[in-house]
Amino acid sequence: MQIDSLLDKQTVYVIDDDEAVRESIAALVDIRGLPVETFSCAEDFLAAYSGVAPGCVITDLRIEHGMTGLELQVALRERGCEIPVIVISAYANVSNAVQAMHNGAITLLEKNCSSDELWKAIVEALATDSDRRSAIQHNKHLLERFQQLKPEELAVMLGVIDGQLNKVIAKDLSISLRTVESRRHNVLEKVGVSSVPELVRLYFELEQVLGQSPYKYLLNQAESQE
C-alpha cells in the first residue's frame, strides 16, 4: 500500500463482515477489470491503507465487530483522507442514511441494488477521485511554475499583472528598462505562457488555490530559500 502516485491504477477497497458480500463485490470489480482488495473489518483496512492511494471505498454500514461504516468515514476524514466512500447497507434507516451523507459518503446503496447500480456508483466514485486528484496535480503544477521565479522577477511580474508599462516598472523599481524587459521575458518563459493575459489568468487561478496573494506567498518562499 505504498502507492503515492497518480500513475497508479485506482483500487476498489471493499469492507464488509459478510464474506459472501465482499467476495461478490470483489468478483464484480475484478471482472470489470479493476484492482480490488477486501477487508472483513474497518480496522484492517485502516492499517493497510496508505491514506493517499487512489480509488474508492465500499463499506458496510453495520460491521459485526469493530468500527461501523459511519465510524470509518469519520476516521478517514480525521486522517485527511479524501478517498470517496460508498456506504452499503442491508437495512438502512433514515438517520443512518443522513449520517452517512453528512460524513461525506458519495452515495448510500441498499443491498438490493443491481450490479449495474453498484458499478455505476463505483465508476462515479472513481471519477470523483480522479477529478480530485487531477485538480490537485494541476494546482501543484501551477504552483511549481511560479515557484521558479526569483524575488526580483516576482517584483516585475507584479507590475506586469498590474498592467503597468515597462518604463513605469523600471522607474518604480529603480532598474533599467532593459532589465525590466529581460526579467519580463523570464517570467513568461518560466511560467510557460506566451502572453500577458494568459499570465494574469494563471496568477489569479493560483490566488484561488492558495487562498492568498500569490506574490506575497511566493516572495516569502523565495526569500526563505535564499
Binding site: 459472501a20 458480500v21 468478483a27 464484480l28 475484478d30 471482472i31 442491508a90 437495512y91 443491498k111 443491481s114
Partner: peptide
C-alpha cells in the same frame, strides 16, 4: 423482521452479484 431482512438480504444480494459476474464472465 428487521434482523431477518438483514440476514436474508446479504445472501440474496451476493447471490445476484455472483450470478451477474458469472453471466458477464461467460460473455467475455
Amino acid at each position: 423482521v428487521a434482523g431477518i431482512a438483514h440476514e436474508l438480504r446479504q445472501p440474496l444480494w451476493s447471490l445476484s452479484t455472483f450470478a451477474d459476474v458469472c453471466v458477464e464472465s461467460l460473455s467475455c
